[in-house]
Amino acid sequence: MKFLVDHHTVTSIINKLRSAGCVFAEEEARLLVTEGQSLDGLLQKVDMRVEGIPLEYVIGWAPFCGLRIVVERGVFVPRKRTEFLVRQAEDLGCSGDIVVDLCCGSGAIGAALAAAMGDIMLYGSDIDLIAIRCARKNVTPFGGHIFEGDLYKALPRWMKGRINILVANVPYVPTKAIELLPVEARLYEPHLALDGGEDGLNILRRVVKEAPDWLAPGGHLLIETSEMQAPRTFEIFAHSGLATKVVRDAERDATVVIGTNSGDSPPAL
């Protein structure tokens, strides 16, 4: 049975959150109250949030493309702007596609694509055990499978030359820029999921380099990047032989580079 929270308690929670610097204190208070199982549990969650722990870790999930994505403390929290990547991939895919999410993190992108596209063969990979645990919770209801390992090394060989949609929200923050990130990301999210090396494109280069070998003829690679990094990312894609374009949603501050494989036929088994 759901416990009831009186108006005075809710007001007190809102004031505490606002004093701690939470910009959307009223909305956060509503979520915390909704997720609370008891008054003591609710107040404990409020204290965690006031301490600075990201709201998604406190309540155990993040909203993404209309889904509740399970997140544990220590996994990268899916961003609203990444919904733009999902929509671009959805527009390019169709029922029956083999869809792979490299650096899948919580599995949010794959789960959202499966929910939107229906009958797809969904796979993902990550090297972080917390991410793998969360991803499996999020994609298993859609029939998805998550592999443990470094990028393509985690994937079974039969996929080579047969992936229709390959998505990757790789770490793309330049190492020295991590210290400029919001406190919640800098202190609580894994740097492994943020740090893209000196120019932020180290992991991206690795993904793009091997992509033509893994994509089916006409298959697509989609990677989120920053607006500033987009020109260099375009060059990396084009150099790999992919037909490349950049798409952007200014409202979400979302930039996605899309490469299409022009290969004629898949390799023999």
Rank of each mutant, 00 (worst) to 15 (best):
A89V: 13
G259A: 00
A89W: 03
I165E: 03
I53S: 00
S12G: 05
G259W: 10
H145N: 04
G161V: 02
I165G: 04
D97F: 13
V10Q: 15
P267S: 01
S95K: 07
F237E: 01
I163D: 00
F142R: 04
H145C: 11
E83H: 14
V23H: 07
T244F: 10
P266E: 00
M117T: 06
V5N: 03
I109R: 04
L122Q: 01
G196C: 07
N202R: 10
I146R: 02
A20E: 02
M159E: 00
A114N: 06
E148K: 13
L194T: 04
G144T: 11
L122F: 07
V170M: 09
L92H: 04
V246G: 00
E148T: 09
L180S: 11
E198P: 04
L92C: 07
G41H: 13
G21C: 06
Y188H: 15
L180P: 04
E189N: 12
L122W: 05
D213G: 03
L166H: 07
C134L: 08
V257R: 01
L43V: 11
R205G: 06
D126N: 10
L31K: 14
V10H: 13
V167D: 01
L43F: 14
A230P: 01
K160W: 00
A111Q: 02
R73F: 12
L92R: 15
P190C: 10
Q229L: 15
N261S: 12
A131G: 14
W158Q: 00
P212F: 09
L192G: 12
S262Q: 10
T82P: 01
M121A: 06
V10N: 04
A254T: 07
S262A: 09
L221H: 01
I132V: 13
I13L: 09
E184V: 11
L32K: 03
E198S: 06
S38Y: 12
I109H: 05
G66F: 07
L43K: 12
Y123G: 01
H145V: 10
M1P: 00
V246T: 13
K209D: 11
F142W: 11
L221T: 00
W214Y: 04
I203K: 02
E227P: 01
T255S: 13
L122N: 04
G263P: 01
F3H: 14
V173T: 13
T225N: 08
E235W: 00
A89L: 14
A154L: 06
L221N: 03
R186K: 15
L17C: 11
L55T: 09
G107F: 15
K176V: 13
D213Q: 03
E179T: 12
F237G: 01
A89N: 04
K137Q: 15
G21W: 08
R186A: 14
F64E: 03
T225C: 13
S226W: 06
S19V: 13
V183H: 10
A114C: 07
G52S: 05
V99I: 02
L85M: 07
F24N: 09
